[in-house]
């Protein structure tokens, strides 16, 4: 089971739910790696929903594990892409042809959910109407508050900003607009005194 129990945190930290079928004609589903399992669960709850489903899936490290299963659900469309970032233009184009009433389901890593949500809200669906479910890796996208660069797949606290090289501690404060958590210099008041990195949530 790849669902992670996130510890309780501050109000700006996103909380993910469990995907469920919703009324509507068109269902846009975006998932990476183990997020496919959440889509499969929705299909099991309401198989005939899939005739109106448009799936964008990024296997990442999971290879073909879930692809055949997703095909078997009989979605109206299934796109398997090498990465989320390669598919952003395609997603934006899909959204320009979409109408209000579109149901959106996001599943997988926080990075995928945050970035896809940003595209959908920019297109005009309020964020609280978008369903999310976390599955798989708990790595974070972090914005360095100093240089504004985003460091992907952060699993330790502290970590090194991949742009400016500062040592940053990991905050739970999260921005939907940036789809990232905030990283702040950890040794500003005692330069060089950087604790050993510890894995997140350990």
């Amino acid at each position: 089971m790849t669902k992670f129990q996130f510890p309780e945190s501050i109000r700006s930290r996103p909380i993910y739910g469990t995907l469920e079928p919703r009324p509507g004609k068109v269902h846009l589903m975006i998932a990476d790696a183990e997020g496919a399992e959440a889509l499969i669960d929705v299909a099991q709850a309401k198989p005939d929903l899939m005739a109106g489903a448009n799936i964008m899936y990024f296997p990442k490290g999971s290879g073909d594990t879930f692809v055949t299963q997703l095909q078997a659900l009989g979605p109206a469309q299934l796109y398997v892409g090498p990465s989320y970032s390669a598919s952003v233009a395609r997603l934006r184009r899909t959204l320009t042809d979409s109408h209000m009433g579109l149901q959106v389901y996001l599943a997988g890593t926080e990075g995928l959910i945050g970035q896809a949500m940003l595209e959908v809200t920019t297109a005009g669906i309020p964020h609280s109407a978008i369903q999310t479910e976390h599955r798989g890796s708990v790595a974070r996208r972090m914005q360095c508050v100093h240089c504004k660069g985003i460091t992907e797949d952060v699993m330790t606290d502290p970590f090194v900003c991949s742009h400016c090289g500062l040592n940053l501690f990991v905050r739970d404060h999260y921005s939907r607009r940036l789809a990232a958590f905030q990283g702040v210099c950890i040794d500003a008041e005692d330069p060089g005194n950087v604790p050993d990195p510890v894995e997140l949530y350990s």
Binding site: S12, R13, V145, D172, H173, L178
Partner: peptide, 22 residues
């Protein structure tokens, strides 16, 4: 606090880091 980070947040979200008040 950072405007660039907090812009777009609602009242509870931008106050999230304040201890106890919640």
């Amino acid at each position: 606090w950072s405007l660039d980070f907090d812009i777009g947040m609602n009242f509870f979200e931008w106050h999230a880091p304040v201890p106890k008040a919640n």
